[in-house]
């Protein structure tokens, strides 16, 4: 059974402020991701890949289709699951890394990273230690770990963002260009941390700007073009295609 089974998923926005104009982000997207595999979604901007990822996290409400997600307790359709069920899954096993950090202001980085662990019921001291370790793996100095992200550079902030998602060791990781704001050295550290999670059996769906990241992380690639799947296959085949123009 695949870890994630997306069936005929579509997302259409109805813009009531523009007289009910509709805008289809993507339509009829189907794919499966086996447990422990990484799927990279590639495509030009506006192709619908970010919307797709957000639908998988239920940050956007998909219009039709199904997102079957296998948990220990059975399969859940993330499209129709009650809000609380989605929140529980977000807390316990689905991690999301956005392009930019969205965090509570005036909370020290270490505490931002530790928060998901605390919500999952970890001891405060253990959670902070785990947060420290993850931030260290991403190359953040001990001094910075106690400061607010608002005072940091974009790259430093993004490390907090990545660390927060990885620290909770999610079973499904949704990555929306997590490394685009990072300098090459930090990008390398972040990719290593994501790979470590993969070795532990995590599944991931990610959008990556750079081909290096795709090749380093992905097992499979799905190409979106104008909201439709134009290609889907193993990363080795993708590398040999001429799709990347």
């Amino acid at each position: 059974m695949p870890h994630l089974d997306v069936r005929a998923l579509s997302k259409t926005f109805t813009m009531h402020l523009l007289g009910g104009t509709t805008l289809t982000a993507f339509a009829d997207v189907s794919f499966t991701v086996p447990r422990g595999r990484f799927l990279a979604i590639v495509g030009r901007s506006g192709s619908g890949k970010s919307s797709l990822l957000r639908c998988l996290y239920r940050r956007y409400l998909p219009s039709t289709g199904a997102i079957r997600y296998a948990t220990a307790g059975g399969t859940v359709d993330l499209l129709s699951a009650p809000d609380r069920e989605v929140l529980r899954l977000r807390r316990s096993e689905i991690g999301y890394v956005s392009q930019f950090l969205q965090a509570i202001p005036r909370v020290p980085s270490r505490d931002i990273v530790a928060a998901p662990l605390l919500r999952a019921g970890a001891e405060p001291a253990q959670a902070r230690a785990a947060a420290d370790e993850m931030l260290e793996r991403l190359g953040m100095s001990a001094a910075l770990r106690g400061t607010f992200p608002a005072t940091m550079s974009g790259g430093e902030r993004q490390r907090v963002n990545v660390a927060r998602a990885l620290c909770a060791a999610p079973r499904l990781l949704l990555l929306d260009e997590p490394t685009s704001a990072l300098d090459p050295e930090t990008r390398r550290l972040a990719l290593a941390a994501i790979l470590a999670l993969k070795r532990d059996g995590a599944t991931a769906v990610g959008i990556f700007h750079d081909r290096e990241a795709v090749e380093a992380l992905a097992d499979d690639v799905l190409v979106l073009e104008d909201g439709a799947v134009s290609w889907h296959g193993p990363v080795a085949d993708y590398a040999t295609t001429a799709l990347e123009a």
């Binding site: 239920r58 940050r59 956007y60 409400l61 809000d83 989605v86």
Partner: peptide, 13 residues
């Protein structure tokens, strides 16, 4: 709905 969903993908006019 979920707060992030209501704020980022509001359904109602």
């Amino acid at each position: 709905g979920l707060t992030d969903q209501v704020l980022e993908d509001p359904q109602d006019a």
